[in-house]
Design a binder for these strands. Structure first.
Lengths: 280, 280
DNA sequence: AAAGAAATAGAATTTATATTCTAAAAAATA
DNA sequence: TATTTTTTAGAATATAAATTCTATTTCTTT
């Protein structure tokens, strides 16, 4: 009689999605032993804690022993808590999709045709736009609008990749009769001395930051002008200038970063400023 | 002389909120050593990963050594990674709402605030991007790429609202060493006679079409150059020039049309051309 | 109520992870 | 360029967490 061993039931495979997990939980919860049921209820009520908690913490929260947590995980088909937590963590990061890996996947299928490349830029633009609403601080945006609406003249600084942004701003301001100067750097004329204390500057730059933009912004700052910075991360050099920072994180396709989100931020900023100036 | 020891600066107290953390990061990032700066940028771009990642995972993501991560944490005033992660985890509970709920929330407050306006532009940009894949004919796009890849020099024409598009194209072409000329119309110099038979023109214009763009394109056409048109409807005046037409339909918010889709089309076009030229 | 089976708590162990340390490289200074 | 200082990478260690194990308790069944 060899097989008296303990294997209680044919080991079930672990749920592969959170939905599958809760489905299984719902159907088996009733049959669970006391402490396991108790823990199941806790998980159902606080699924958001799983990705960031240890076994001990969850056990304490549910008022169970750590070993009960382990038994629960195994009952649900996982090898242990670590595996279950991995599922919960992967779901968490789905809300902030890791587009870099996703793009890598797209690339495998070949970016050979222009249409495929276009599709990539569209996809990247879409998610950059969605991110935009989370990276731009509404308070900072309102401050920026206030500052720019008060300014006598608005100066726009941005070169290379940032130049389309400033030229778009220039177009919008002109259309709304807002006094604005686009510093294009043409003919190496430095117009920093045109920037006066009651003026404001919109500086646009992304890593790797163009030195000339930073220099001009610094000069303007020392002249007493306010600075609104459209940039990618808080670590940008413009932070030191006590600039009002509007952060945009664009994704890139290969060596090229999209501009969709930046442009949308720029036009929203310009239109808000125009509206506020006309209101006064 | 007892105190030769290493204590570099009086230990700063750790930031108590995420905002304080990023504020400190912004003000000290410039002075950080190379690898620490590198990691700082990574954190600034991916703060959402911190609560659910180990030191090793983040280190790999930022392409630094785990020990660099530790030095970073200590530099920021934490005792170590665990303490820093604790801060990020505490903030995690106030889940960053996802895109749709955030958008809905912004809309509630009406279009009065800049944030609400930004949300409008984001939404409009999104749907323009989605449309783009249906309005742009893949065959025409491929033709455009072929024509531009064959051209000796690429000329870009576009003014006012189209200028950000052409300047973006100019930036991209320059970066890829593709011979390209941006016709900015500065100083009213008409450079049409620079356009030679083996060249190609990218003309960008939208209703109401700017006469100067059409004139220049017409002139180029009579010189024997090929024309690629980025425009909004088939009835555009550029159609008569036997131009290869790439159609974009952008939606607008109030009096302002978004540019997200147009920019995405432009960059995809430029990168495809660059790739094809280098392939030959 | 007694025997058997199942479930549990808490300690013991194993594994993973954070942290520290040191030699080497890079940068700064003279 | 030589010297000193800072910064870094990678291995070594310490710490914390997950997992397993076992004696005990609690339920079931007869």
């Amino acid at each position: 009689m060899p097989d008296t061993e303990s294997a209680p039931c044919p080991q079930t495979s672990p749920p592969e999605t959170i939905d599958a997990f809760f489905e299984r939980l719902g159907s088996t919860a009733e049959q669970l032993p006391k402490r396991l049921k108790q823990f199941a209820d806790f998980i159902a009520a606080n699924p958001d804690r799983v990705p960031v908690s240890t076994v001990a913490e969850l056990a304490e929260g549910a008022d169970v022993q750590p070993s009960a947590v382990m038994r629960f995980c195994q009952e649900m088909g996982f090898s242990g808590y670590s595996q279950m937590q991995k599922l919960f963590r992967s779901d968490y990061s789905q809300k902030w999709p890791d587009y870099t890996t996703r793009l890598a996947k797209l690339r495998e299928h070949g970016t050979e045709t222009p249409s495929a490349l276009l599709a990539e830029f569209v996809e990247v633009g879409r998610s950059s736009l969605e991110n935009l609403l989370t990276t731009v601080d509404p308070v900072a945006l309102q401050q920026a609008v206030d500052v720019l609406a008060r300014a006598e003249t608005i100066h726009m600084i941005g070169f290379r990749r940032a130049f389309p942004v400033t030229s778009y701003l220039a177009y919008a301001f002109e259309k709304m009769n807002v006094p604005a100067v686009l510093h294009s750097g043409i003919a190496n004329i430095n117009m920093e001395h045109l920037i006066r204390p009651n003026d404001a500057v919109i500086a646009v730059t992304f890593a790797p930051y163009s030195q000339i933009t930073i220099d001009m912004a610094t000069q303007a700052r020392s002249n007493g002008a306010d600075i609104v910075a459209i940039t990618d991360v808080v670590t940008s050099p413009l932070a030191r200038l006590k600039a009002i920072q509007l952060l945009v994180s664009e994704l890139d396709v290969g060596a090229f970063r999209a501009l969709s989100a930046t442009l949308s931020l720029a036009i929203a900023l310009a239109v808000s400023v125009g509206a506020q100036r006309n209101r006064i």
